[in-house]
Amino acid sequence: MNVVSLVLQAGLRDLSRNRWIVAYTLSFLGIAEGLFWFGGTGPQVLLSLLNLVLLVLPLVALVFGTIHVYASREFVELLLAQPVPRRELFAGLYLGLALPLAGAFLVGAGIPFIVHARDGATLGGVAALLGAGVGLSLAFAAVATWIALFTDDRLKGVGLALGAWLASAVIYDGLVLGAAAAFGNYPLERPLLGLMLANPVDVARVLVLTQLDVSALMGYTGALFERTFGTALGTGIAAAALVTWCVIPLGLAGRRFLRRDF
C-alpha cells in the first residue's frame, strides 16, 4: 500500500474516534433533524443549514484543523524520519484531516435529507449545500494546515485561524456591502462578482444561491448576471472557484511542508 493511503487511513481512524469530530457530526445531525422535526420543509431546512455551513463550518475547520496539525507535530516528525517522501506524507496528512472534517459534515447534514427526501428540497439544492460544505471543509482544512505550518507559535496560529474565520465569514461581506453602497453609481456587477470569487465563504454561498435563489439573482438588471446565473454556467463557475480555493492554500501548505525544517 502506498504512503498516502496508509497515512490517510491512520488519520481517518484517529479522527473518526475523536470526540470533537463525533460531537460535530452529531450536532449537524441533531440540528438538521430537529429542523425537519419542528415542521421545516426541505427548502427551509436547506436555508437554515446554509447559515451553519457559512458560519460554523469554517470556524470548526480552521480552529480544529490548526490545533490538530499542531497536536500531530511529534507524530509527523516520527513519520518524516521513516524512509518515505515528504510529498506523499503531506498528501496523507492533509487528507487525513480534511476528509474526516468533510465526512463529518456530509454525514451530519446529509442523512436527514435522505430520511426526509420527500419534504420538497430539490436535488440540486441539497447537492449544492452538501457540495459547498464539503468544499469549504477541504479549503479551510488546507488554510488551517498552512497556518499551523507557517508559525510554530501555537497561540499565534490559533489567533490567525480565528482571524481568518472572522475575516472570511463576516468582515469581508461587510466591506463588500460598504463598497456596494459607496460606489453604487458605478457599474459594479463585474468587480463584485470578482470579489465574491475571492472569498471561499462567498463562493460557497453563491454556489448554493445558484440553485436556491436563481429567481432572485435573475431579478438584478445586468446582462452579466443573466448570462452567469441563468444557466448552469454560474453553478459551474462557483464550483470551479471552490475547487481553486482548495488547491491554492493546499499548494501553499504543501510547499511549506516540503521546504520547512521540523
Binding site: 448554493v208 444561491l209 438584478y220 445586468g222
Partner: peptide
Amino acid sequence: LVVEQHPAALLLLRSPLVSI
C-alpha cells in the same frame, strides 16, 4: 431596502452578515 437602493448588493443575499 438596501438592495432596492444598491442592486449590486444582491450578491450578498443569505450572507451571515446580512442575517445579522
